[in-house]
Write a protein that binds this DNA or RNA. Structure first.
Lengths: 140, 140
DNA sequence: TATTGTTATACTCTATAACTATA
DNA sequence: TATAGTTATAGAGTATAACAATA
């Protein structure tokens, strides 16, 4: 219907919208936004990471991390401690409740990902991730 | 750094953010948002289309089309006429100024698309669009 | 009774700038 | 002088519900 359908930009936007909606359907009862989930998953893999580093890695704004982290702490999933070596820094780790929680959420994320890539074969899904990875790691 | 990097959902979000920023850099002086550009491109290919149909096609909200169309009309790019057969409907066409404008914007969109897919070969770019297309056309 | 388009509004995500405390 | 984190705020994009006019 329009030649925008032949551009990557438009197609990505459409797919992203659908995935966003699907995420909120699947994670509605979890109280997690995509950013909050990605933050938890990053802390899980990198215990002791500081919040500014997570923001850099995930492409989030540092200022927007504050309330995000605060809510994760209040829910008992994340622990914040002052760094011993640098008193400006808060190091972040998962509590045992947080570890249990992220395990369940990881399962859910994988199921969700399988759901909205169900029209792709396993190989196509891998190819898609690989091509998107090339675009992201391109220094621009 | 996190296993979210192995999910399509996360990778799409990251790519989309970069493309969004690149769009605004390239189209800053045009006064077009991605939705406005896609709307113009759709009217160009489908003269006489009604605005609700564009919203459906592009995944936009009908209520959000109102101001979008209004600004395109005010800028002299789009003409709105009552449909002869159904008095509820406005048919949309491009003015000659709108046709000149969309041609330039199409060139710009293609250049932009080439820019942020520059880390991909032509074949990879085609593959990417094909895989995204499969996901979009999946009835879900 | 359903559909097209409109209005008003609210919510989420993201961006920016000024601030503090520490280095 | 630079960095980590905070606060407050503004903006864009999107979503929802109620409405008028027309079918």
């Amino acid at each position: 219907m329009s030649f925008v359908e032949e551009t990557v930009g438009y197609m990505i936007r459409r797919v992203q919208e659908r995935m966003f909606a699907a995420f909120h359907r699947r994670f509605a009862d979890s109280g997690l936004t995509p950013a909050a989930y990605a933050t938890l998953a990053t802390i899980d893999r990198n215990p002791g990471v500081r919040q500014g580093r997570i923001a850099e890695e995930l492409g989030l704004q540092n200022s927007n991390m504050v309330n995000l982290i605060k809510s994760l702490v209040e829910r008992g999933f994340v622990e914040r401690h002052r760094s011993a070596s640098d008193n400006r820094v808060f190091t972040l780790t998962l509590s045992s409740a947080g570890k249990l929680f992220i395990e369940k959420m990881n399962e859910r994320a994988l199921a969700l990902d399988a759901e909205y890539t169900r029209s792709l074969s396993d190989e196509e899904r891998r190819t898609l991730i690989e091509l998107l990875g090339k675009m992201i790691t391109d220094p621009q």
